[in-house]
Each structure stands twice: as C-alpha cells, then as structure tokens.
Amino acid sequence: MATFEVFGRRKWDAPMEHVGILHAPDAEAALVLARETHFRHDEGVEYAVCPSEHFHTQDPTLLQRQVDISYRLQSGYSGFRDKREAARQAADARGRGDLRERPVPRRHGGEA
C-alpha cells in the first residue's frame, strides 16, 4: 500500500493546491478514491494525485529570507504622492506645467 498526495483546484482560476494524502494500491485507484476522500463536499473543480515517493520537499528554512528584498515587492516603492508633486513643481519651474483637457483619473490597479 502506497500513499498518494492529493491536489485540488477549488475554482477554475485558482491554483492547484495540496489538500492531503490517501492510501491506495496504485494511481488509478487513488484517483477513484480521492473523489470521496477529499472532494465529497464539492471542494473543487479539478483534482490530481501523485505518488508520495515522487513528492520532493526542501528544507523550508531556505525560503526564510534574512536580508531585505523589498526592492522585489510593491512595498519597496512608496511616497508616490510626494514624488508626483515634486515632478509637477519641477515642470512648473521649467515653464512646462500642462493644463490640457484630460480624463478624470480612475484608480489604476498598479497605482499607489
């Protein structure tokens, strides 16, 4: 009897996530059994199994970062209100302030 890792997708646009393991003699059986071991309450739209022996894990401390990597994250960029204002003032100082007609700003997903 081998164990199988079970993965499921809750919604069509969600990632496959690990939901548990089950015992089964082979992959074919694991696929049949997983439906009721892990998805009997309508937990997902798609699932998969993988023999536990093919499921490799890494020492999780390798993911714990000790050094600041905020330059890779949105949080690494801030103060946009002030920076935009500084640029506007610099434009005015250069005599390049611009008052042309423009749309009312909408909130943009990436905007600070």
Binding site: D13, A14, P15, R72, L73, Q74, Y77, F80, K83, R84, A86, A87, Q89, A90, A91, H108, G109, G110, E111, A112
Partner: peptide, 27 residues
C-alpha cells in the same frame, strides 16, 4: 488566464518601478 493572474500582479510592481524611474528623471 490563471498564469495571467500572477503576471498581472507582478506587473503592478513593474508599474511602480517604471513610474519611480520616470518621476526621478522628470524632477
């Protein structure tokens, strides 16, 4: 579509990265 969710999320960071460089040059 699933991959684009992640790509678009990362692009929001790039948007800030780009605007930051742009604003620094403009000012």
């Amino acid at each position: 579509a699933r991959v684009m969710k992640r790509v678009v999320a990362e692009e929001s960071l790039h948007y800030r990265h780009g605007e930051d460089i742009m604003l620094a040059l403009a000012s």
